[in-house]
Simulated assay, not measured.
Amino acid sequence: MDFSIHVAKVVRIGSFELWITESMINSWIICGVLILIALIVRNAIKNPQKVPEGVQNVVEFLVDSLDNFAETTMGKHGRKFGSFYGSMIIYILLCNLSGLFLGPNIGAPVAGEPKVLIDFMRPPTADFAVTFALAMITFTMVQGFAIKEKGTFTWLKGLTEPMWPLTPLNVIGELANPISLSFRLFGNILGGTIIMGLYYNLPWFALIGIPVALHAYFDIFAGVLQAFIFVMLSMTFVASAMD
């Protein structure tokens, strides 16, 4: 069995190499699906009705729920973050759930075949590069909005509280947030991917019926839960930085 991240193509620009991985390709596919759905929905509610019905009713309910969730979690600042974190949770959720349709990569390269095999069978969030990039968005927002709301001097002063000898610990604590965020999401999704890969490598008679329950837990339950936790913690970090 092979659980490594495969490289689809290496683009060389002078001495610089850009590796196009399967995680990037899967992410682009999911982004493409989301953009297509958004365009279809936009076309369906091009002329919104005063009394919503059909697609407009569903969209208004979804947007209102995400805005209320952001406001409940982040307080007075929340509503303006609703669209951003709504997009993030939908993206992460689809990445996590993609294991239902894509599954783990099973089987090592066969002799005589190309060494680089493209496997569209791995959730993007099972790649630490993807989850770390998402966590760095949160880290940048935390520091950026803290400076915007408090000012640079007050932000720097906050790193020295409650007493200046604790400044290194405060800095380490800030740097630890994106690491813990990214590892939590990555570890849970990769763990499910590996377990499903090991299970599917069992003899055929051991696979009857049971994969449904395993997919329900590792892909649906864990996928939804981890998307919610990641976004919830991100919102909490940003809100705390702005207080």
Rank of each mutant, 00 (worst) to 15 (best):
V58K: 06
H215G: 01
V59Q: 12
S182E: 05
F228I: 15
G144W: 04
P123S: 07
V110C: 04
N188D: 11
I195T: 08
A135N: 04
D67H: 03
F139H: 07
G82K: 00
L94Y: 08
M121V: 07
L34A: 10
F221T: 10
I179D: 13
K157A: 11
A216G: 14
D119N: 06
K80Y: 02
V110Q: 12
L100H: 10
S180W: 14
L100I: 15
F183Y: 15
F120P: 00
M235R: 01
F128G: 01
N43I: 10
P178W: 04
V41F: 09
G32T: 06
T138H: 03
I29P: 02
R79K: 14
V110S: 10
S180P: 03
G82L: 01
T140D: 00
I118V: 14
N201W: 07
F153Q: 14
F61H: 06
T152Y: 11
T236Q: 06
P211G: 07
I40G: 08
F69I: 05
E17M: 04
Q49H: 11
M24N: 04
L214M: 13
P124C: 05
Y91M: 15
F84H: 06
P109R: 10
V10I: 15
V11I: 12
L117I: 12
I179V: 15
L94R: 04
Q56W: 03
